[in-house]
Simulated assay, not measured.
Amino acid sequence: MIQRPNRAGIIAALDTQSPEQAEAWAEALAPHVGCLKLGLEFFVANGPAAVARIAPHRPLFLDLKFHDIPNTVAGAVRSACALAPAMLTIHAGGGPAMVQAARRAAEEFGPDRPAILAVTVLTSTDAATLSATGVSGGPAQQVLRLARLALEAGADGLVCSPREVSLLRDAHGTGPLLVVPGIRPAGSAAGDQSRIATPEETADAGADWLVIGRPITAAPDPAAAAAAIAASLHP
Rank of each mutant, 00 (worst) to 15 (best):
L64Y: 04
T89V: 09
V77G: 05
A74I: 01
L83Q: 02
C81D: 08
P70T: 00
G93L: 11
A84C: 13
K65H: 13
L88H: 01
K65A: 14
R78P: 03
G93W: 00
H91T: 11
P85S: 13
A76N: 09
G75M: 04
F61N: 06
L83H: 06
C81M: 12
A76C: 14
L60F: 14
P96R: 12
D63L: 04
I69Q: 06
A80P: 03
L62D: 10
L60A: 10
G95E: 10
G95R: 13
A80T: 09
T72M: 03
A74Q: 08
R78W: 00
P85V: 10
K65N: 07
G94Y: 00
T72K: 06
V77E: 08
L60Q: 08
P96T: 11
L60Y: 06
A86R: 03
A92E: 02
H91V: 08
S79A: 15
L62V: 11
G93T: 09
A86S: 14
L60V: 13
F61W: 10
L83S: 01
G94Q: 05
T72L: 09
A84S: 15
P96L: 11
G75R: 05
R58S: 13
P96K: 09
P85Q: 10
R78I: 01
F66D: 06
A84Q: 15
P59Y: 01
V73A: 13
A86H: 02
M87E: 07
I90S: 01
A74H: 03
L64N: 08
N71Q: 14
V77M: 07
P85K: 01
R58A: 11
D63C: 01
P96Q: 14
V73C: 13
L64A: 13
G75H: 10
G93C: 10
P70S: 06
G94N: 04
G94E: 03
M87I: 15
A82I: 12
H91N: 12
T72I: 02
N71P: 04
A92M: 07
N71I: 14
A80S: 09
S79V: 10
A80C: 12
C81H: 01
A80W: 03
L62P: 04
P85N: 11
P96I: 13
M87K: 06
A92L: 02
D68V: 00
A82W: 09
L60I: 15
A92Q: 02
D63Q: 08
M87L: 15
L64F: 05
L88C: 04
L88Q: 00
A76H: 04
V77W: 05
G94L: 03
L60K: 07
P59F: 15
D68F: 08
L83G: 00
M87D: 10
G93P: 04
G95A: 05
I69E: 07
A92T: 05
M87R: 06
A76D: 01
V77K: 05
I69S: 04
A82E: 15
L62I: 10
F66T: 04
